[in-house]
Simulated assay, not measured.
Amino acid sequence: MAESLSQDEVLEAVARHIGRPGQGPRLRRTGADITRLPMLDLRVVRSVETRTTRAETRPGRYDISGLPTFEGKLRDHPVEPPRNPARSGRLELVLSGSARTVDCGCDEGRQPCARCRARGTLDCDIGPSCPVCKGVEPCTWCDGTGERRKDRATSGPAGEKGPSGRTTCLKCRRARTACPQCRGRGTEQCRRCEDTGFRVCPVCAGERSTKHAPCDGTGLITRWTAGSVGHAPERSTTRLPDPAPPLRVRQQAGRTGAWQRATLTRAGEPLPDALDPAHVKAVASALESRPGEVARQVDIGWLPLVSVAMTDDPDHVFYVFPGSGGLEVLPVWSRRRSLRAAAVVAAVVVLLLLVAALV
């Protein structure tokens, strides 16, 4: 197809587009700069394979009879490549003869409770401060310790009448010395342990042991050597020329251009004969085999594209490419005209700012 875009055909297509049919040769004489910019759209999807082995364990008698097996080294086991390289997949296998069920080594499926350290109980925090004495003077005799205070003089022998409203202390048993609310404790009674100082462990419920997690309480473990063969797609894209033509040209060529396309599915498969010579090296480099590649799909699209800049029309560049009905011509502004338009816009903006400042 590239050979079909001769200079004469390109110039005649431009001449027809500007309303001067038959004057293609005249455009050449007046000065026409023709640049070939063949377009390439190369998309590659490779399926890359990875193989790993690992030790696996499951609690109890675990059934792995439904998994396929492999012998010897996993790298030597034949696995069919995926039919669609764009799809991910994983095959799980078992090394032949590696599966066995063994005793866990625990105490018949139980293990000491880690929360209470096999005591069955937990220390309980004391309750909140007494709302009456605030824990400051729960007992005038022992201060809630159960023993006589040594830093103050006592109010008299046991049984002697003490301060009004006081009651017998639960700690030292002294009459009429304790706060009537907490009775010498200095705190409210703990509702969880009723002031015993310990409570039942919520993890083991006082049993001092819990189910052994690795064997799920069965006392047995199934072990085997597992193998995994994974397939993951890796995608790459190459688009030429570089730098790319203007966006408008790329969009129009993508919609109406008569692209030639080919699909390759094997490494080393010959490239299409019609591929533009300017692209052969780039395509060959992009299609080199990658480590672990087991399958591929290569979609190649190419389209001849020519730009024409004419001396007698410096404001436009004409892009020519084959379409479904013949050669299509798409004019775009030249760099010179784009810069001039940008300068005009900038001048208008400056003028508007000056007017706004004066108003």
Score class of each variant (00 low, 15 high):
A274S: 15
A274T: 15
A274D: 15
L275D: 06
L275K: 05
D276W: 01
D276S: 11
D276L: 03
D276Y: 03
P277G: 02
P277D: 04
P277Y: 03
P277R: 05
P277K: 07
A278L: 10
A278M: 06
H279P: 10
H279E: 10
V280G: 07
V280L: 12
V280F: 01
V280E: 14
K281V: 14
K281E: 15
K281Y: 00
K281R: 15
A282P: 04
A282Q: 14
A282T: 15
A282L: 06
V283F: 04
A284G: 08
A284W: 00
A284Y: 00
A284N: 09
A284M: 01
S285M: 04
S285G: 05
S285A: 14
A286C: 10
A286W: 02
L287W: 05
L287R: 06
L287Y: 04
L287Q: 09
E288H: 06
S289A: 14
S289W: 00
S289K: 13
S289N: 02
R290M: 13
R290S: 15
P291H: 09
P291E: 12
P291I: 04
P291F: 04
G292T: 12
G292C: 13
G292V: 11
R296D: 12
R296L: 11
R296A: 11
R296E: 12
Q297V: 13
V298S: 06
V298F: 01
D299Y: 00
D299E: 15
I300D: 05
I300C: 07
I300H: 06
I300E: 07
G301C: 08
W302K: 06
W302C: 12
W302G: 09
L303Q: 03
L303A: 08
L303S: 07
P304V: 11
P304Y: 05
P304D: 10
L305P: 01
L305A: 05
L305N: 01
V306I: 14
V306Y: 04
V306D: 06
V306T: 15
V306M: 09
S307E: 10
S307G: 05
S307D: 03
S307M: 01
V308S: 06
V308H: 04
V308R: 06
V308I: 08
A309Q: 11
A309C: 05
A309D: 11
M310Q: 14
M310W: 01
M310V: 15
M310E: 13
T311V: 13
T311F: 01
T311Q: 09
T311A: 14
D312N: 12
D312M: 14
D312E: 15
D312A: 14
D313L: 01
D313Y: 00
D313G: 02
D313C: 02
D313N: 09
P314I: 09
P314T: 11
D315Q: 05
H316E: 12
H316T: 14
H316M: 13
H316W: 10
V317I: 13
V317D: 08
V317W: 01
V317C: 06
